[in-house]
């Protein structure tokens, strides 16, 4: 591209404000890395292999919150998949006119909703509901499976958090799947109907075409639920005890930080350990976001000719 002198001036005048984005990113990563250095040097791999939180004695382990974060995110992604996929199919394939408008507006409304509202609703209504109608029946029928082996006492648990976060990311996942599904060229659909496929059969074929994009949506959803704080802090039950049972209270990294960071300056290394815990989460979620969006870009260039 040819740049005249005026254009160059224009370009340079835009630089200082625009590069503030770069400055913010570098400062952020440097801060987290520097702050977590202390604890990484002192505790090393013990941080990842034990789950003790004893600031008075200066012993820390992050295994329970890290596993809690991963499990709640897996549950969340699973919930979101089961509910978003039908929702996207119905919006594209079956709904028309005003009904379609209303349903997609509801999805949009859900998408921008402040998470604190979900958190309040989940803690007061969803958790008791899940306890009575999902956790207790599952516990009573499948006691012998370790995942369901403990009796849900309050309902606040890893399981409840996973489902609550799952509900809150439905619109996010749905939007990505919808966009992908709608960008599949019409020719494929015409080809399906041309060989006499029913709607179900053509949807099956379309979904198999969109599979990489759906997987990408799940990866992006996973990255987002890893960092979710308010819903997790309110529903997870805050316990450092590592259990194989989904109905026991647990911790996620963000819930741990939300409840411990305010007092962390009182104890040596507590702050640094918390920075280390968020460092892991930031690294995973940035990596996954890039991976997820690169899948979509590659898929789009292949399918949309």
């Amino acid at each position: 591209m040819i740049m005249t002198r005026k254009d160059k001036l224009f370009f340079i005048s835009l630089l200082p404000l625009s590069s503030s984005l770069l400055a913010i990113l570098i400062l952020s990563i440097a801060t987290i890395a520097l702050k977590s250095l202390d604890s990484l040097q002192i505790f090393g791999f013990n941080l990842l292999t034990s789950s003790i939180w004893n600031p008075e004695k200066g012993i820390y382990g992050l295994l329970a919150p890290l596993i809690g974060s991963v499990i709640t995110s897996i549950l969340a992604v699973f919930t979101a998949l089961v509910l978003s996929l039908p929702l996207s199919i119905i919006i594209v394939e079956y709904l028309r006119g005003i009904v379609k408008n209303i349903v997609s507006s509801i999805v949009e409304l859900m998408g921008g909703m402040p998470t604190i509202i979900y958190a309040v609703w989940a803690s007061q209504y969803l958790v008791p509901f899940l306890k009575e109608f999902l956790m207790e029946p599952l516990h009573n029928t499948f006691k012998y499976i370790p995942l369901f082996s403990c009796r849900p006492i309050t309902g606040f648990s890893i399981f409840a958090t996973g489902l609550s976060i799952g509900i809150s990311i439905i619109p996010y996942v749905t939007t990505i799947i919808l966009e992908a599904y709608q960008s599949i060229p019409l020719a494929y659909r015409e080809a399906c109907y041309g060989i006499g496929a029913t709607r179900y059969e053509s949807i099956k074929i379309m979904l198999s075409l969109a599979r990489p994009a759906i997987i990408a949506a799940l990866i992006l959803g996973f990255a987002r639920s890893l960092g979710e704080t308010t819903i997790a802090a309110v529903t997870v039950g805050n316990s450092m005890y590592l259990s194989s049972c989904l109905f026991a209270p647990g911790y996620t990294v963000s819930a741990l930080i939300a409840s411990q960071f305010a007092n962390a300056y009182l104890y040596p290394y507590a702050e640094s350990v918390l920075y280390a815990s968020i460092l892991f989460v930031v690294l995973i979620s940035v990596a996954l976001s890039f991976y997820g969006s690169s899948i979509i870009i590659r898929w789009r260039s292949k399918i949309v000719v």
Binding site: L27, T31, I32, R224, T229, S285, S289
Partner: peptide, 19 residues
């Protein structure tokens, strides 16, 4: 700038609070 915006968007909000 595009890539930076993308990575900034994926930093969890609680991490921003700590920073």
């Amino acid at each position: 700038i595009d890539a930076i915006a993308k990575s900034l968007a994926s930093i969890p909000t609680i991490a921003v609070s700590m920073i």
